[in-house]
Design a protein around this nucleic acid. Structure first.
Lengths: 147, 147
DNA sequence: TATTGTTATACTCTATAACTATA
DNA sequence: TATAGTTATAGAGTATAACAATA
């Protein structure tokens, strides 16, 4: 119990890691049910229906080659989930946006992927609230946030 | 704050999900540094140097075809990380075991993958201990565990 | 000339089907 | 005949290189 804090953090990380990995098969099933590959899911998550993203920025975010991004966006476009538009100021650049169908697909995806596993539902309300307070979130502080 | 418990669990799950996904690039780098594919890593984790696993049981655990398992184990064997042995009682069956080099590779992998992210190290000792208590672990109860 | 994105192509990973060897 | 595993082969996904269009 009186262990080095780094070792404690490592243990917690391992616990979270294993907990998360245990849910991998379930997430795989969600994707299979929706007929999406992991890449499709990542792409749906990265896009929006209004602002749009350039091919280049997607390649950078995904750390993959531009030709691969072309292929991934092609897949989404063929299924009617995304569309390309030439940018107004610079016609070399293309913006990729979610279509109405793409937004729906993304909603279904989020619902499935964010479905909490049974192990989490078994925890008490107090434990859940504690977790919500402690687990680090992106940027914004959680203290006092009531939403 | 006085929300439905399911909604609360969903929020916690989303938080953990996002937290975990944020670390994905770092884990990708660890694999790249060690020259391992995600599959290699999964295989190294599944194997041990003493008991051994049958090809069949690996296929089942991974939910992939037996031929794919052959290919994955071949990769490890070519790098000297694993070896096949015919089982004594039934010579149709093959046991896959980690070699000495394989054990070392698995150690390097575990060290890299279980390196806790900075966000976790920033938490207080109390917060870490709380997480260790709450985050569900495989099977065994955590209550009173002092290791 | 430099940059954005696509096309041509080869390589890696995965699955299905046919096969070998043991039981 | 049935089972464990491999080999042959085809398909999906990814990368590198050459290319076209625009700046």
């Amino acid at each position: 119990m009186a262990r080095d804090k780094n070792a404690l953090a490592a243990q917690v990380w391992k616990q979270m890691f294993d907990f998360f990995m245990r849910g991998a098969p379930q997430r795989g099933k969600v994707l299979a049910r929706l007929g999406l590959t992991p890449n499709d899911a990542r792409a749906l998550s990265a896009l929006d229906p209004v602002v749009g993203r350039t091919m280049r920025s997607l390649s950078d975010e995904w750390g993959c080659d531009a030709s691969n991004t072309t292929w991934i966006v092609d897949r989404l476009e063929k299924r009617g989930f995304a569309e390309r538009r030439s940018k107004v100021g610079d016609r070399r650049v293309k913006l990729v946006l979610l279509t109405r169908e793409g937004v729906k697909a993304r909603q279904r995806l989020v619902q499935g992927m964010y479905e909490p596993p049974a192990e989490l539902l078994k925890l008490s309300r107090e434990q859940l609230e504690t977790l919500a307070r402690i687990v680090p979130t992106r940027g914004e502080s959680r203290a006092g946030s009531s939403t």
